[in-house]
Design a protein around this nucleic acid. Structure first.
Lengths: 231, 231
DNA sequence: GAGATGAGGTCTTTCGAAAAAACGTGCCGC
DNA sequence: GCGGCACGTTTTTTCGAAAGACCTCATCTC
């Protein structure tokens, strides 16, 4: 089990929050498989924390819907399904469209600069990624930052928290699809287009492009053998 | 501290989930005041659980945004503010409008029956409540069930989970306002109107009424001295 | 053979002591 | 007077043992 993420310095203040983050990363990146039973003995070894600390992390992940638990029967990684993905996608479309609208209406010069910067970081990375077709943690972070920058002027903490949670849930599906279909399609052009339309100030066009982007990715995941992994 | 909710039989499977529910109820109903520091010694006595169990409950409430924590400095009840209320209200409007639309489009006969039943239960209760102007736990439950029934045909678990979380956060503000202004305005007519418009099948009218309902309540809370309690 | 019973083992949940961290206070030097 | 340091106190965080729940499977009864 060497691929489990390991962090030496605590990322959050407490060990519990560190374990929480690492568990989330391992679930989202499908090192821990959907539906997999999470046994404490095993987790204790991997994450180096005690029962209580693990429990705390797990129960937070339950409220994030990445882990499920039922009565006194322990925890397991939230299962995946086509229904869940479609439902999730609809919710994301709703939230992203709103975030896009608000961001365009409220964005200022600093916002534009941030978008350009995030885009270029991602774009450079994708240029290099092109051949070695492997989604790295770094790419994931740059991709996240880019999407975050695009809507960072929306100015709604609540909306953003919800968006964030759904983004993580969706990221798991994306990773899953990448596992069965190792060569990712080139998204460079698409990301550039998203940046351009949002900077153009055309709300409706930007919203539609975002919606199409989200739905297309979901469709790709669906057609690329979800069931192979979930099993 | 006699008004803290006490449950004898566990409501969920585990003590941890029971404590979680009781803590949430006490926060939402403002027995535990916004901004209040949550000390373990105190909580241990009140809820009869150990450090670890309390910690687990608290950290789940953090992801629900009813509790905040910072590094290694313990937990406190999430503070309230006008900004937070307005932000929350915007997010609720977005989600409720969508839930209303989906429910009307997908609702069947069973859905209509459920709405009628929930409405009558709430209506009977409000008829009696009229004089004694006190929000009881029972009214709260009936009110919740009514709103839940109205959009229960939306058929989106994700959307519903998010709606639910925001509803709880908003409930705290409503309770707060009820504390400083003990006589609640009669909402009977308003609730009847909501039921009628949603059953009429007019999506746009239903959405607008819902939006008005949510925004008016928030406005009421704002004008009724938020700061008196938050202090 | 089908179903009930229960003993044994596995895994989960809970607890409170112990370690670690933050906070408050008074002292000292400047 | 003021800033900073040291030390005792308070509070939080972590741990692993112990209690409790669940599942399995062998055995018994009808």
């Amino acid at each position: 089990m060497a691929t489990i993420s390991k962090t030496n310095g605590l990322v959050g203040g407490t060990l519990a929050s560190d374990v929480h983050h690492r568990l989330r990363e391992d679930i989202v990146s499908c090192v821990l498989k959907p539906g997999q039973r999470l046994r404490f003995e095993q987790l204790k070894e991997i994450y180096g924390a005690s029962y209580s600390t693990l429990r705390e992390a797990l129960s937070s992940l339950v409220t994030e819907q990445l882990v499920v638990t039922e009565g006194q029967r322990g925890f397991m990684v939230a299962p995946i399904s086509a229904d869940d993905l479609l439902d999730l996608t609809d919710a994301r479309v709703l939230l992203e469209r709103e975030a896009v609208r608000r961001s365009i209406e409220r964005g200022d010069a600093a916002w534009r600069a941030q978008i350009l910067s995030a885009f270029h970081r991602l774009d450079r990375m994708e240029a290099h990624l092109h051949d070695q077709h492997r989604i790295t943690g770094e790419w994931d972070a740059a991709h996240f930052d880019f999407h975050e920058a695009l809507v960072s002027a929306a100015g709604s903490p609540t909306l953003n928290t919800l968006r964030h949670a759904l983004f993580e849930r969706a990221r798991r599906y994306r990773r899953l699809s990448a596992l069965v279909r190792p060569a990712p399609r080139a998204k460079r052009a698409e990301h550039r287009e998203m940046m351009e339309v949002i900077l153009s100030g055309d709300v409706a066009a930007a919203q539609d492009l975002f919606e199409r982007h989200i739905r297309e990715i979901a469709q790709n995941v669906l057609t690329n053998g979800l069931e192979l992994i979930s099993k």
